[in-house]
Design a protein around this nucleic acid. Structure first.
Lengths: 224, 224
DNA sequence: ATCTTGGACACTGTATCCAAGATACAGAGC
DNA sequence: GCTCTGTATCTTGGATACAGTGTCCAAGAT
């Protein structure tokens, strides 16, 4: 018997392109509404249009781009309504996920949340806004991924990309918001450890709604 | 000023293929795990592999098929765990949707639910199991689509396809289950009209969990 | 009888080519 | 100056050709 060897399974070009574009969108390297011509992007990435199309098709299903027939593909453009509805839906999913985590995997969940919080702390002290936003995303995904329901986790992932894009595009560097946000995350971990579901719900709701308000403000500001 | 004319915008081949395959899967014309070779299916539908690939890519994102690199594409194959987790997640989404409907569009929601129930009644009397399953799907989508949150509705749509496939594959014709199911739907409408949220939640939970149990039974039966 | 190995086959992954719709802009007509 | 229209160009939509890889089966060796 041969011990299991690590094989580098060659990723398909289309998935590489998908991940690359996904990163670019959620890390705000591309702006909302920006055109993504299959030709141009394919040329710049050194791939032909076929894997480009496949990547764009998947990104469309994830809501990160919109494909307009015969016109082109564009980075999604959130509306105020989107920001609001995303927050509302996030709240539903994350609340349910936290409840499930508390029942089935409290220790692992707490550990992952704590380590994500630590990453946030480092990023904040380094003044790295993008890294902070990424760690914020990881924090929320950490407990969603422990909830034990793959369909819930999948649904969360599809909206998580857009939420992350909002964070990266609209969060203000070094703001009081960031301090507030950090404190809220820490409080959530505490409440989770104390198994205080009522408080946890309240904190989560407060956290998400405050973030939503900030994004909404930034969005209006951006549109002016 | 010209009155708005209806123009038939020609659907892309890939979307036609997608819808056709989607129908085939959720109406149990294709069995779980069945291979869908791009060549073979493309030939039988009279399209080339390019739109085939695009359609399959989208269906994969919806969880209706799985694409195994270098091997092929196959109709998704639900496990017992899937059935359970789908039910659990459905319950979360539908409960939330019903609450939102009651607040923002009770009249339209009730009308759509009622008309879907009528379709179910007709199908039941005609003994058309597939039509009954389809109407069942429409019933549940009717209130989800009135909940006012597009992201919730989208998430529901992605799991709805798989739930519908379970229904079509695993529901038993003319069974007591069907009578039970019909009655439960009617009771739900009543509770909705009376704005009795507590009862409605209980009915929905009961309805979904009973269906889950039936699908689980049919699935093990099928695997033997 | 069982294990190994070679090769044929089938499938996907990618590139290239052609067709058709959408848009922008320039020029003609008023 | 304004409007309409024709055309040039850019975009996607689809078809086809080719290369790479995994799978299966059968033949040979142990």
């Amino acid at each position: 018997m041969i011990p299991r060897l690590q094989i580098e399974l060659p990723k398909a070009l289309s998935t590489i392109v998908e991940e690359r574009l996904r990163d670019a969108i959620v890390n705000a390297e591309l702006s909302f509404g920006q055109a993504l011509s299959e030709d141009a992007v394919g040329l710049s990435l050194g791939v032909s249009r076929t894997p480009m199309r496949e990547a764009l098709t998947r990104l469309e299903q994830q809501g990160l781009v919109v494909i307009v027939p015969k016109k082109g593909t564009f980075v999604f453009q959130p509306t105020l309504e989107d920001v609001e509805q995303l927050a509302s839906f996030r709240l539903l999913l994350e609340t349910s996920a936290l409840e499930r985590c508390m029942e089935r995997a409290p220790a692992e969940t707490r550990d992952d949340m704590t380590s994500a919080l630590e990453t946030m702390r480092v990023a904040r002290e380094a003044g790295d806004t993008k890294a902070y936003a990424r760690a914020d995303t990881v924090f929320h995904e950490s407990f969603v991924n422990h909830c034990g329901n793959v369909h819930l986790a999948n649904a969360y992932r599809t909206i998580s990309g857009r939420v992350a894009a909002l964070r990266a595009h609209l969060s203000v560097p070094h703001s009081d918001q960031q301090d507030l946000s950090f404190g809220e995350h820490r409080s959530m971990i505490e409440a989770f450890e104390n198994r205080d579901l009522t408080l946890l719900r309240q904190l989560l709701s407060q956290h998400i709604l405050r973030a939503q308000a900030a994004y909404a403000d930034a969005l209006v500001e951006m549109q002016r």
